[in-house]
Amino acid sequence: MKKILGLCMLTALLYGCSSVPITGRKRLMLVSNSEVLSSSLTEYSNYMKTAKVSTNTAGKAMVTRVGKRIATATEQYLRNNGMSKEIKDFAWEFNLVNSSEVNAFCMPGGKIVVYEGLLPLVSNDDDLAVVLGHEVAHAVAKHSNERMSQQIAAEYGATILDATLSNSSAIVQGLGSMVYGLGAQYGVMLPFSRKHESEADYMGLILMTMAGYNPNNAVTFWEKMSANGKGNAPQFLSTHPSDASRIKSIQKHLPEMSKYRPTGAGWKVSTTKDTTTKKTTQSTKSINVNSIKTTTTPKRNN
Rank of each mutant, 00 (worst) to 15 (best):
G110I: 14
K111Q: 02
K111W: 02
K111T: 02
I112A: 00
I112V: 01
V113W: 00
Y115V: 00
G117S: 08
G117E: 03
L118V: 07
L118P: 02
L119I: 10
P120M: 05
L121A: 03
V122L: 14
V122M: 12
V122Q: 03
S123L: 11
N124P: 01
D125R: 11
D126Y: 03
D126S: 15
D126G: 09
D126Q: 07
A129E: 09
V130H: 08
V131M: 10
L132T: 09
G133M: 09
G133N: 11
V136D: 08
V136T: 15
V136S: 06
A139Q: 04
K142I: 01
K142F: 06
K142S: 10
K142W: 08
K142L: 06
H143L: 10
S144M: 11
S144W: 05
N145K: 04
N145R: 03
N145L: 06
E146F: 00
M148D: 04
S149V: 08
S149K: 10
A154S: 13
E155H: 01
G157F: 05
A158N: 11
A158S: 07
T159M: 13
L161K: 07
D162C: 00
T164R: 15
T164I: 14
T164C: 05
S166D: 12
N167D: 14
N167H: 14
S169N: 14
A170C: 08
Q173K: 15
G174K: 12
L175E: 13
G176M: 13
S177Y: 15
S177Q: 15
V179A: 06
V179Q: 03
V179H: 05
Y180G: 01
Y180W: 13
Y180S: 01
Y180D: 00
L182G: 03
Q185F: 09
Y186M: 15
V188W: 05
V188Y: 07
M189G: 06
M189Y: 00
P191F: 03
P191K: 12
F192R: 14
S193N: 11
R194C: 02
R194K: 04
H196K: 13
E197V: 05
E197H: 04
S198D: 04
E199S: 04
A200Q: 01
A200C: 14
A200G: 00
D201K: 09
M203G: 01
G204F: 07
L205P: 04
L205K: 05
I206M: 14
I206S: 01
I206Q: 10
I206P: 04
M208F: 07
M208R: 07
T209F: 07
M210E: 09
M210I: 08
M210N: 09
M210H: 03
G212H: 00
G212L: 13
P215D: 06
N216M: 15
N216F: 11
N217V: 10
A218K: 03
V219M: 11
V219N: 01
T220L: 09
W222G: 02
E223T: 05
K224T: 02
K224A: 11
K224F: 05
M225R: 02
A227E: 14
N228Q: 15
N228T: 13
K230N: 04
K230I: 15
A233V: 14
Q235I: 15
Q235G: 02
